[in-house]
Amino acid sequence: MAWMAWTVPTAIFFCVIALALLTFTVLAIRYPETPRLGVLRIETTRGDRLFITLLGSAFINLAWLGTMSDPQWWALILCLVYATAVFRWV
């Protein structure tokens, strides 16, 4: 594994993503997903909303890094707000 050059932060990052995927798989088995139409006028399931959240969060973090001088933690908080909005309205 040394060739993969692991670090603690990146390991935590992948663990969180893996955990999210696992949680949503279990949720999908226990409570089957039903697609719904949200503000984007596209049909989304719970899994789709997770994907939109993760992809959007990546761009929020990059935009924050490129434009703001404040610590990156703020971007993470913004991502949480974004995630809540996506799961509520998209």
Binding site: M4, A5, F14
Partner: peptide
Amino acid sequence: IPLMTVVNYSVQDT
């Protein structure tokens, strides 16, 4: 696995 390695490389210098 290659993609994970790229993520690991992106936060380090070698």
